[in-house]
């Protein structure tokens, strides 16, 4: 069994590898942000001239809102009225399932190939 001897990586190559990794990492978070795709936004409009009653708040709730610094209903109106939109398309869901499963399948397949080399060299080469 021939033992694998890796090539020596140049300093420039090492810096380049780290730079690529960093670029991809920052891109993964910031690209969805820049494109405006990231995050679930709250939807819903505040009613005109809201009152605590029209916002569905009971006296205890009003007391707590006051304690938190919201002394009138209009100040809290936006927080109370906004809701998440959980509608989704089945196709998007299927795409996500395929991507997740495909990702793990890819990793397990490549890992297995690499792992066999490791085990062969570690145990079968001795």
């Amino acid at each position: 069994m021939t033992r694998y001897v890796p090539p020596k990586q140049s300093r420039f190559g090492q810096i380049l590898d780290v730079a690529i990794l960093l670029l991809l990492t920052i891109g993964a978070l910031y690209i969805p942000l820049w494109l405006g795709f990231a995050g679930s936004t709250l939807v819903g409009e505040s009613p005109q001239n809201p009152t605590w009653e029209s916002l569905g708040q009971n006296p205890v709730m009003v007391e707590q809102w006051n304690g938190l610094g919201f002394t009138d209903a209009s100040a809290a109106s936006e927080i109370i009225s906004s809701r998440f939109n959980y509608s989704f398309s089945v196709i998007e869901l299927l795409v996500m399932i395929v991507v997740v499963i495909g990702y793990y399948a890819l990793i397990l397949r490549f890992s297995e190939k690499e792992y066999r080399d490791v085990i062969d060299e570690k145990f079968n080469g001795q």
Binding site: A28, L29, I31, P32, F37, A38, G39, M96, V99
Partner: peptide
């Protein structure tokens, strides 16, 4: 809520 981030 964050499907695009998940895929990204």
């Amino acid at each position: 809520g964050y499907g695009s981030q998940l895929v990204a």
